[in-house]
Computed example of a mutant assay.
Amino acid sequence: MKKIFLLFATVATLVACTQNAVTGRKQLNLVPEAQLQADALTQYKAFLSENKVFSTSTNRDAEMVRRVGTRIANAITSYYGAQGKGDVLAGYQWEFNLVDSKDVNAWCMPGGKVVVYTGLLPITQNEAALAIVLGHEITHAVAQHSNERLSKEYLLQGIGAVAGTAAGTSQKANIFNAVYGLGSQAYGLKNSRNQEYEADHFGLLFSAMAGYNPQEAISFWNRMAASSGGNKPPEWLSTHPSDENRIARLQGYMQEALSYYKPISK
C-alpha cells in the first residue's frame, strides 16, 4: 500500500507541477483555480458576516484601503494584460474591506477578496506602506500560493487524486480551514518562507507600478520589527523570515522596483 501511495504521489506531482506565470517558479497545483476561488468566496462571506466591516462611504480609512487596493489591482491587471498573461487573473472580482480588529493583519484570498484589520493601520501610517502590505498579500493570491500549500497538504494526506471530487469534501474542508487558520485570530494563509520572499519581491514591484514609493517598505518593516518588542521566534522556528533577513531581501529588490515607480499625479 505504501508503494502504491508513493507511486501515486510521484505521478500526481509530475502531472500537477506547472510553471507559475507570476513568479516563474514551478509549483504543485492539484486544485482547479475556479474551485479554490469558489471555496474562498464562501469563507470570505462568512468572515465578513461575523465581523464589523467599515463602510467606504463613511470611514476615511476604509476608503483609503479601497483606493490603494484598487490602484494595485489595476496595475497588476495592466501589467499582465500587456504580457499576454491576463488569464492569471481569470475569475478575479476584487473587493477591499477594512475590518474592526486589533490584530496587525491583512490578507487576500484567491479571487481577489482582500481584508485589512484596523490594527495594522497604526503601523502602516501612510498609503505607501499600506500599498506595500496589500501588494504583498495580493501576490500570495495571484502567485497561487494557497493552491500550492493546499496541494501539498492534500498530497501528504493521500487525497491529491480526488482533490476535485465529492469523495474528499469533508477532508478538504478541514485542510482548507487548517491552511487558512479559519476561526482563529491568525486568519490568513500560512505561507512558507520562500512564498513570503516571493510575496515581498513581487508585492514591492506591484506597489511601485501602482505609483507608491517602494522605499517605504524598509521603514514599514522597521516599524513592524519595533512593534513586536523582540518577541518573535528565531527564523528557523518560523515560516516567516526574520525581520532582518526580510529587510535585507527588500533592499536587494529595490532597484528593480524603482524602475517601475512613477509617483501618483496629485
Score class of each variant (00 low, 15 high):
73 A>W: 06
47 F>H: 04
52 K>V: 14
27 Q>R: 10
60 R>K: 15
56 T>E: 02
35 Q>H: 02
17 C>Y: 12
34 A>F: 09
33 E>S: 15
15 V>P: 08
32 P>L: 05
38 A>N: 11
46 A>L: 13
62 A>L: 02
43 Q>E: 14
72 I>Q: 06
28 L>E: 05
57 S>K: 07
72 I>N: 00
36 L>Y: 03
48 L>W: 08
66 R>H: 05
67 R>L: 01
67 R>H: 08
73 A>F: 03
34 A>W: 07
15 V>C: 01
53 V>Q: 00
51 N>T: 12
51 N>V: 10
76 I>P: 04
57 S>T: 09
33 E>D: 15
35 Q>C: 06
26 K>H: 13
60 R>D: 13
55 S>H: 04
57 S>P: 04
71 R>I: 09
58 T>A: 11
77 T>I: 10
28 L>T: 01
39 D>W: 07
73 A>K: 01
71 R>C: 05
74 N>I: 05
48 L>P: 07
41 L>P: 10
46 A>E: 10
68 V>N: 07
29 N>D: 13
74 N>F: 00
35 Q>G: 11
62 A>C: 06
67 R>T: 02
38 A>L: 09
49 S>A: 15
48 L>K: 08
37 Q>S: 14
39 D>M: 12
53 V>M: 09
46 A>M: 12
30 L>V: 06
26 K>D: 10
40 A>H: 05
22 V>E: 01
46 A>N: 13
30 L>S: 03
34 A>Q: 11
72 I>W: 02
33 E>M: 15
32 P>W: 10
57 S>C: 02
61 D>V: 00
54 F>L: 05
74 N>M: 07
15 V>A: 02
18 T>V: 13
48 L>V: 12
71 R>D: 02
55 S>A: 07
68 V>C: 06
63 E>R: 03
42 T>M: 09
59 N>E: 00
37 Q>K: 11
45 K>D: 13
29 N>G: 10
28 L>V: 00
41 L>M: 14
60 R>E: 14
30 L>K: 03
39 D>Q: 12
23 T>C: 03
36 L>N: 06
46 A>K: 09
69 G>S: 11
66 R>D: 05
66 R>E: 08
20 N>D: 15
37 Q>I: 15
65 V>N: 03
40 A>P: 05
54 F>R: 03
59 N>I: 00
61 D>E: 02
56 T>A: 06
35 Q>R: 04
69 G>R: 04
48 L>S: 08
